[in-house]
Amino acid sequence: MSVAQLNKAYVAGDYKKCYELAVSAKLELAKSGMLIPDKSSKNADTARTTLERIALAALRMSDDNTFARTFEQLRVFYSLKKSGKAAKEYDEKSKITGLYLLLLLAKNDIAGFHTTLESLTEGGEDMAEIESLDPYLSYPVKLERWLMEGSYGSVWKATQGGEVPSEEYALFSPILVEAIRNEVASCSERAYASLPVASCRSLLFLDSDKEVADFAAAKGWTIKEGRVYFEFTSTENITVSESIIIENVIGYARQLESIV
């Protein structure tokens, strides 16, 4: 019952209702044994579509946990099809997988990102294919590379411009921009002594000088005569801290004792 209702709500674009129905729909699927895919593709298709819709609805309601959990359930369906003969690609598969990758990226779970990516690319064979053909998957892959390199400008451009593959992907843009802004801020603190407010604004991807002032206040920077002065935090402690030396030497002594 609720499965049908859920699908109806999704088609009508009522994501809130869809999200509310998710739990009972999953329960219904589980009761009829459809959560575990079998060979009869008819049932599996229904279950898969429903799960996909639940995942997307959860994402729109910004419930990351439900999305991640539903993706884990979907993964079984996807991997089954891959090994089977009828390897018909699903329209939603790469979209949802891409969204999951983006979620991991937004959470800064790079290890999880690479683990998932590895299972997708079969150890790199399809990497080139993904990069050139699949817009859904290439987007998070590109973002990750830029983030790791430090090309924050490219990340910002990608999240703002028309490169975002679908509206669900745009949901992550604010999180990602926030993340790179903090990265840039921590880099700038170390790299510059001071910056003009205008340059600071463009570096941090902020819209107005007012926002720069707010951001600077949050970070503890001072603004004087149109320049931002970074709190000079010289963490360069040249003297070796005693406690570490003591700890190490006691460690060596203990090791020596156990050897001799």
Partner: peptide
Amino acid sequence: DNEASAEYMVARAIR
């Protein structure tokens, strides 16, 4: 490709 990303990369390397 552009100076802006070079600046970010250098800043990151410094950090």
